[in-house]
Design a binder for these strands. Structure first.
Lengths: 198, 198
DNA sequence: CACTGGCTATGACAGCGGTCATAGTAGTGC
DNA sequence: GCACTACTATGACCGCTGTCATAGCCAGTG
């Protein structure tokens, strides 16, 4: 989880995402991002001539792609994949982090939405795109698992809404309870949507 | 929705909540709050000697109590109250706002959590308390509607998680779809938890 | 050698943030 | 009239922010 090896540009985007999901967009300074990435301050204006807005948008973008990629991994890791199993894995990613690293960090896309939805149109659009690139693989996975196409999109939206909300509650009360609760309560509903047994 | 009549102190707390849920905590200035409340700047340090932290905490507190109070109203407004009906009302509060006033504003408690959970302990606790004072009436309502006590708390947590997450998605993509989706998909699950038919 | 282009390194600037200090006003009780 | 309290009104301060400007380094290339 420390700074990866990649190039400085990618490191800065990654660091921005980490700091944003911890402190929010407004409280995250450009200098702080550079320092966290171990990158020179001068590189900021070189790689991100669009300024903070561009950096934030790329961080949100990166987070969306990351979340989307995870879905395939979760499916591959499950011995016998089911909708509830997928959802449990999505939730477990967060309970694991909170139990091992503490409740310092939330979802960067949520932070960007809260802080910029009204003030910065391009960031709001980036957040919407990020949610979309996260929802889409989930919906597709549900279809693969036997959920009717008409229903898959709605359930994917429900899953992501529940996870995002549970992250907020869990962070606020510093307890993974809300996360495990939504996983437990939503599991049966998700599995019941499967109309074909493989 | 404009500035109410109350005293200047309460107006400032209210204005703080409104600005926070629009722009986030960090981006909301004290001077801005005073101006929005039509209150003199000097009153800030008089009523809130604890500074911004105190003001934000009281705004979060106020939001929690407001949300809690709404629950009773929703129940009273329903011709024949059911868990799904209550949830639909909770969601409708947001779809109504978004359809009439646009997607400028989100939940102030969510904003406080995202912006202050790591940086300001007292605000994180205020957010946790706010979520609690919101969850508790919902859980109690579920019990009244026939949901077993052991299950009511979990379902209340699920409801609030889903609403909070759906608010994020809806704001990001400027579409009430996620809100209506979670209401539709979660309704049957909630009603199915009723074990007694009144 | 010179020259170019990618990247680094600082310094300066203007703006805004929360907070403190101080002075002023309004109203009330005596 | 006076004194006291509640509240208002400004102005100043310092720290931090994002951004710009400028100069330096240091390959590669011809």
């Amino acid at each position: 989880m420390t700074v990866a090896e990649r190039g400085p540009r990618e490191r800065m985007v990654f660091s921005a995402a980490q700091l944003i999901r911890r402190d929010g967009v407004a409280a995250t300074g450009m200098r702080e991002v550079a320092a966290h990435a171990g990158a020179p301050r001068g590189s900021l204006q070189h790689y991100f001539p669009g300024g903070k807005e561009q950096l934030v948008n790329e961080a949100v973008d990166w987070a969306g792609r990351y979340a989307g990629r995870r879905v395939a991994r979760f499916l591959a890791a499950l011995p016998e994949p089911t909708p509830s199993g997928l959802f449990a894995e999505m939730v477990r990613q967060w309970t694991d982090e909170y139990e091992t690293a503490g409740f310092a960090r939330g979802c960067p896309v949520a932070a960007a939405t809260v802080d910029c939805a009204e003030s910065t149109a391009s960031t709001r659009e980036a957040a919407a795109a990020a949610f979309a690139t996260w929802t889409e693989p989930v919906a597709r996975a549900l279809v693969d698992l036997g959920v009717p196409k008409e229903r898959a999109g709605a359930l994917a939206t429900l899953m992501i809404s529940a996870v995002e909300g549970a992250i907020l509650l869990a962070r606020a009360q510093q307890d993974v309870g809300p996360l495990t609760t939504v996983a437990r309560e939503l599991g049966p509903l998700l599995d019941a949507a499967v109309t074909r047994d493989d």
